[in-house]
Amino acid sequence: MLTRPPVKFIDRIARALPQIVVAPGFAAILYFVYGFIIWTGYISLTKSKMLPNYTLIGTRPYERLFQMDRWSVAIENLFIFGFLFVFVSVIVGCLLAVLLDQKIRAEGFIRTIYLYPMAISFIITGTAWKWIMNPSLGLEKVIRDWGWESFRFGWTVDNNLAIYALVMAAVWQASGFAMALFLSALRSVDQDIIKAASLDGASPWRIYLRIILPSMRPVFMSAMVILSHLAIKSFDLVVALTGGGPGYASTLPANFMYEMTFRRNEIAVGAASAMVMLATVAAIMVPYLYSELRGKKHV
């Protein structure tokens, strides 16, 4: 009779190595992301104030949250800011990408200029634009000195305009990134289709509008998803540019959460606002990631 040699112990370890190697990272993510989400979710249902308190009180913190004017302002701001930021960044990014695609000399140089804001912290961006928008010494003064007496650029200190100052700075920072996305997508469009279309007599304009841009739908989708998740997470820019003010006119949910948690001893309300933010991000990201992962399996 033949006997099977026993599986060597070392081979058994070797077989489990991939799992063993993934384990620490995965465990860290499980604990620090999912575990923490659960913790925050729990705290958002308690009567925690200055310190975590584990006594459950149901959805009262959420009710309180939605009664707070500061929160409604933050949510409203998020809608205005998020919509304008995503919309304008995509338009500007797309426009710049198409323009740069016209066989521009020094394309690399120009691209570098458009993209460098991505390398900078939102804190720097906020500080720089705050200085430019300084009502007494900034761009407003320059333009007025040039003769346009009624020019106003002191948006950061204006109740109604502060949120647009945020949009302006955020677009400045992110539209180069959108451009890079679109440019690489433009370059990967099937060239045969373009040849066929131009042989059919389509003008370059029509080719862009009817063929190239529609074929880039997935990239538009990615750009919008990534930008909107950036919008929801926006925190530092507000801190540096407007400080959420004047008053709390330009506050965003992320700043609200920070304010409640670290300054106002309203931990439960802060946690509740964080959970609402998470839900918003998840509502955007999960369907997107799901379709992305599924789509890739077929390739």
Binding site: F32, V33, G35, F36, I37, W39, T40, I43, P52, H229, I232, K233, F235, P253, A254, M257, Y258, T261, I267, G270, A271, S273, A274, M275, M277, L278, V281, M285, L289
Partner: peptide, 10 residues
């Protein structure tokens, strides 16, 4: 993509 606000407290 998790907003970090949800993890800072814990």
């Amino acid at each position: 993509f998790v907003p970090f606000q949800v993890v800072i407290l814990p």
